[in-house]
Write a protein that binds this DNA or RNA. Structure first.
Lengths: 379, 379
DNA sequence: CTTCTTGCCGAAACCGGTTTCGGAAACTTT
DNA sequence: AAAGTTTCCGAAACCGGTTTCGGCAAGAAG
């Protein structure tokens, strides 16, 4: 006998049992869906007693509303968008895990989720972002590494979509942000070096398209001024954000007639390039010349001597960004959502009182160069 | 005159213009929603001519279906779930950026998104995972760092929710995976050391709760056997996955009566602990004793001498995992979705022919210890 | 005892899609 | 020419929620 609709009861449960829906809860209690919905969403026109009955029943039946089912009416998917640019090499690398941990943690705390995407190019980021916007995959976006003029900002602002920046822009209209006071850090770095006795202090800035770069240069200048040192434009090199870039910048500085005895770097990674130069020339970082940088990447701790740097708390940054963005999505005015936090100095071995004056250092470097030429001659 | 419903046309566009919906497309063409939907989703009962008209109109009007609106009927949100455990310190750190890049890239290629979450504890991961499942935030999940017996696997399997593992488990029933052949790498590492002339080769395994640990130990054993070397259980230490752990393991090995002249590490990070021991005792890695590890973390390149290791391509792993998971969600049988890839040897300076025999090394270490005692005595 | 509030909840529309069902028109077959 | 097939699309139900609207009953005011 075949019964088409009857299933033998002990078949393997291939389809997971049906979800419990709001209708299930309603039927179970003999009320309507609308009552359940309003009870669970805190409407005031539901009596406390029914609200209690309903929330208890919902709990007991294991009812969890589908956020995407809610979204279709409310327009909120309860998700934060994060589009990262992951370059060919390193860049954001070490920060990322902490940053993401911070973001997701804050999101989870509010029962939100994080939708993440990546691209290798700036254009790709743009496109991915607009895809996520078009499909409404997130209610708002976190924009890391903001540029002075940022296309993402312009696009989102034009469409009135909530966003928050990790960094600042030229035009703050309608913008919210969380940022680290890199300017303060650079001012402090310069001041510290000056107090150690350095008279010529250089600065290797970061990518000129980013706001932070200008801010940190400003901090460097302020630090010099505060210490009563003159500002020599030649002591500010071309931007450098990689090992190679930092190496080149360092070489160019040391080749000056009156080289600096200390260098501030806007970015740790560039500072690590200076180590190569030092090793190459047989100079000791921390005495022959000093280095202070910014970021707090792990490699800095392993360098020899370990890199003195201003560390940023990426985890906290992610956390704050997510929290602020959620507030923004819930309706807070963008102007009220602006936070700045300090970087924290990690004192290590790459800075100290200068062993030589700039002139002596120049002489020393000349000697080294001569020796190297001698080595090469016999060949 | 006040007209309640009329807006002066040049008000600022505070609400973004209304989305174009499927109904808009339908009305525009004088057809019904259902026709548009079927045309766009490749149903065969729509004539080619109308399909073309519709897809063109949709394109021109800029229609993008809301995935969460689709989801309510189809049950698919077109999103992959990724719950990471980010420990107090490092662990997954360096891999992460590449891994995420791989996952999101493959997802984007199919117009899917990635929903990411983190937790610090194993329990937290479990809870977060089940929350995402309950709210159906993703159609399937990628499970990194699978354990031999993995609760996440059990939970998902029981609920019949698609998932794919980065790693393998004891019980493969209903499981899909992508994994790196760590066993092959360890076999090759051991063989390499044996061919360099090492007679006593040790192994420092990874966390015993992970499958990879057992596999790599197996590879190490196979390598010894293939080289005709006997297996000394004393040469397999307690698990170590951190600097400290690796340091302790190395010390314990070198304190043996007949110490190994080469050590294979299941994990780079533990291998870096051996460098501390070497520095401490004044031994040269690569000649006094050799080290080969596994993972390919960036720090290994900076170590001195640079660490010889078997590197895994995290980006590719993420990419493959996402692709396989999407296939799984689309209905492929789990047994058909199992891939293994090789790790690639990065030959650097931490291994080489042994300068000393085990006996000589033991004597050498005894001398060092004596000297240290002498230093201490006078105090 | 009426009338006016207020509190509380049900009925039904709605959000933006998908899917089932059925029927008109065109096309074959006999 | 009648009957049987196909092809193609409209009508309507549906998915799982939210929100508007209105009405009944209880309490307050007159």
């Amino acid at each position: 006998m075949q019964t088409g609709t009857t299933k033998t009861s002990n078949e393997q449960p291939r389809r997971a049992r049906r979800r419990v829906t709001i209708a299930d809860v309603a039927n179970h209690l003999g009320v309507t869906k609308s009552t359940v919905s309003r009870a669970l969403n805190g409407y005031t026109d539901i009596s406390d007693s029914t609200r209690l009955r309903i929330s208890r029943a919902a709990e007991r039946l294991g009812y969890r509303p589908l956020s995407h089912a809610q979204a279709i009416r409310t327009g909120r998917v309860r998700s934060l968008g994060l589009v990262l640019q992951v370059d060919n090499e390193d860049s954001a690398r070490p920060f990322l895990a902490d940053f993401i941990a911070g973001v997701t943690q804050a999101a989870s705390a509010e029962n939100w989720t994080v939708t993440i995407a990546t691209s290798e190019t700036e254009r790709g980021v743009q496109e991915t972002l607009s895809r996520l916007v078009d499909e409404h995959k997130a209610d708002g976006f976190i924009l890391p590494r903001t540029r002075s003029r940022d296309k993402r900002v312009e696009a989102l602002r034009a469409q009135n979509i909530p966003f928050i920046m990790f960094g600042r822009t030229e035009d703050p209209t309608g913008c919210s942000w969380y940022d680290i006071k890199g300017e303060d850090a650079m001012r402090a770095a310069t001041a510290r070096l000056a107090s150690q006795g350095h008279k010529r202090i250089a600065h290797v800035p970061g990518g000129s398209e980013y706001t932070y770069s200008k801010l940190r240069i400003g901090g460097y200048r302020d630090g010099l001024a505060a210490a009563g040192l003159s500002i020599d434009p030649a002591l500010i090199t071309a931007p450098a954000i990689t090992h190679d870039g930092g190496e080149a910048a360092t070489r160019s500085l040391l080749m000056m007639a009156e080289p600096p005895t200390a260098i501030t770097f806007a970015v740790d990674r560039a500072a690590l390039g200076a180590y190569r130069v030092a090793q190459d020339l047989g100079l000791h970082i921390g005495s022959d010349f000093s280095v202070i940088a910014y970021d707090g990447i792990p490699e800095g701790a392993y360098a020899n001597p370990a890199l003195t740097t201003f560390a940023v708390n990426s985890r906290q940054a992610g956390d704050r960004l997510a929290s602020l963005l959620i507030k923004r999505i819930r309706g807070a005015a963008p102007e009220e959502l602006r936070e700045l936090a300090p970087a924290t100095l990690v004192e290590r071995g790459s800075d100290g009182p200068p062993r030589l004056t700039p002139a002596e250092l120049a002489q020393c470097l000349k000697d080294i160069q001569k020796r190297e030429v001698q080595w090469e001659e016999p060949t």
